[in-house]
Design a protein around this nucleic acid. Structure first.
Length: 268
DNA sequence: ATGGTTGCTTGGCAA
């Protein structure tokens, strides 16, 4: 039996409830990690998800902004929320998935977008993004994630590689692909036991996107995407990675998110 | 170079 773990920045879980349920039905992830749920825990569509077979929920929401959640068919234990940058933002939740004999810790992140200007003096939101990443690297070291099978997923709001964006040259100064952010993210990655799951299956010289802006009349033909959503596996899980599914079709669904679901399958 | 769209809410941020 394989274990399927998906991540999706949903940009309002209440508005997107129909397509979340559609995705669960059509693709059947065992675990779905959501970002940008944009609602309080009491407003989260818990009963709909439970009715769809996802009985185990871990929710870290807040009114109007951010918010992350894990919906699982398998029991969740050790649910934890870490607050970064002491700002009260709901940007992380983790849980241990009990999948039969296997136990895998899943960390679900929503990294700050960072505003429009790639300069922390002119734009505090960019500073916050860099500080968040620095704190994430420190936290990573302290967590000692190498000691147990772990998966880190989420909207990291950075497209690190040249072919994670439609034009490396055009985006070098655009927040999400600047060298300073890429460098910070690399430090986070290297602070843990990680393998970049998507890039182990899809070569680095191949274009790969998980997000297409709303601000484009025809996202599909323009295809100016970015890989902002990531799945990192602790090295011990690398050999278990059987399959990937980046559901580009979901960008064309009715009332879509600007991100698409990304799913991995792990063999025993 | 600029503006383009969407969501949470109804004015203006945030993404």
């Amino acid at each position: 039996m394989s274990l399927k773990i998906a991540t999706w920045n949903i940009n309002s879980v209440r508005l997107r409830k129909p397509i979340v349920l559609r995705y669960l039905k059509s693709h059947g992830p065992d675990v779905l990690c959501l970002q940008e749920t944009k609602c309080r825990d009491s407003e989260f569509p818990s009963s709909d998800l439970r009715a769809a077979g996802y009985q185990y929920l871990a929710i870290n929401g807040q009114k109007g902004y951010h918010g992350v959640a894990i919906a699982s068919r398998m029991p969740l234990a050790d649910i934890d929320k870490h607050e970064f940058c002491n700002m009260g933002d709901a940007r992380h939740i983790s849980a241990k998935v009990i999948a039969g004999q296997r136990e895998i810790t899943v960390h679900n992140f929503y990294v700050p977008a960072g505003g429009d200007i790639a300069d922390r003096e002119l734009n505090p939101k960019f500073g916050h993004k860099l500080d968040f990443l620095d704190e994430m690297a420190e936290w990573m070291t302290a967590e000692k994630l190498a000691h147990r099978p772990s998966v880190l997923v989420g909207d990291l709001n950075i497209a690190p590689l040249e072919h994670d964006v439609w034009s490396h040259k055009a985006l070098l100064k655009v927040v999400s692909h600047t060298p300073i952010e890429v460098e910070r993210l690399k430090k986070v990655f290297e602070a843990g036991p990680w393998v970049d799951a998507l890039r182990t299956k899809i070569p680095e010289d191949e274009k790969l996107y998980t997000w297409w802006s709303y601000r484009s009349a025809d996202w599909e033909s323009a295809n100016k995407g970015r890989r902002l959503d990531h799945v990192w596996l602790s090295a011990d899980l690398k050999s278990a990675l059987a399959d990937l599914d980046i559901l580009k079709d979901a960008r064309g669904w009715e009332r879509p998110s600007d991100h698409v679901p990304v799913m991995i399958s792990l063999n025993d």
